[in-house]
């Protein structure tokens, strides 16, 4: 049975087609979910894609978290459904309180568009179940506010509970503790700044995102 992945489209999203294409290439079904609908339409997994939802006005994710679909995403996550926020989607999930901490402006005040190397830090998440701890993945980043931060207590909890999912090998943006991605306490909500959906073919420079998204599809099938 192939799994259905819903990709949320906000006004200003711009990576939703990349995510849909990646899911389909890997044998899953993918469909768009409109931010103004109060449902996730019975999908098996949700991707909150990259872009500039609602123009990033006020702050990235600040308006998007109040989009009607987000209440449905919250319920879906509470029931254990896999939810992945990529880049702007990560920012939306932190603003919505589905993940702790916040994304501040990159150290150095530069918009970063580059291929980074990530280290897989845990296999206990919906994005990394098919990988091995210590795996190095070449995945692109494309962001201005990707510098993850949180208070010291939150960082202690994230580390103690094995909730840091990815770290940068060479920290590009100043993120605290080199964090590139984290997961929720239930391990079914993951946010990351890098774009695995853009690393699914050697033609794109890397296919290291395949194992990441295959993990998501497996979680979706199990959900």
């Amino acid at each position: 049975m192939s799994s259905r992945v819903g990709v949320i489209l906000f006004p200003g999203s711009n990576c939703e087609q990349d995510a849909i294409e990646a899911v389909r290439m890997l044998g899953g079904e993918a469909e768009l979910l409109w931010h103004g609908d109060e449902t996730v339409a019975g999908v098996d997994a949700v991707i909150v894609p990259g872009g500039f939802a609602h123009g990033d006005y006020l702050r990235p994710g600040a308006i998007a978290r109040f989009s009607p679909v987000m209440a449905a995403v919250q319920r879906f996550a509470d029931e254990g459904g896999p939810v992945v926020g990529i880049c702007n989607g990560f920012q939306v999930l932190t603003e919505a309180g589905l993940l702790p901490g916040a994304l501040q402006k990159n150290r150095g005040l530069k918009f970063l568009c580059a291929t980074t190397t990530l280290r897989v830090e845990t296999t206990s998440s919906v994005l990394t179940s098919g990988l091995a701890v210590g795996d190095h993945l070449r995945i692109p980043i494309n962001h201005f506010e990707g510098n993850y931060t949180c208070d010291p207590e939150t960082l202690s909890v994230l580390k103690a509970d094995d909730r840091v999912v990815f770290r940068y090998v060479d920290n590009p943006n100043g993120s605290i503790d080199d964090i590139a991605g984290i997961c929720s306490s239930g391990r079914n909500v993951v946010g990351l700044m890098p774009h695995p959906e853009r690393a699914i073919s050697p033609l794109l420079g890397s296919d290291d995102g395949v194992g990441v998204l295959q993990s998501l599809l497996r979680a979706a099938t199990a959900a």
């Binding site: 501040q104 402006k105 990159n106 150290r107 150095g108 005040l109 510098n147 931060t149």
Partner: peptide, 13 residues
């Protein structure tokens, strides 16, 4: 304003 300890690259620039 940004809280103390939060990077302010615009201010620094």
């Amino acid at each position: 304003t940004l809280r103390p300890g939060i990077a302010d690259p615009q201010g620094a620039t």
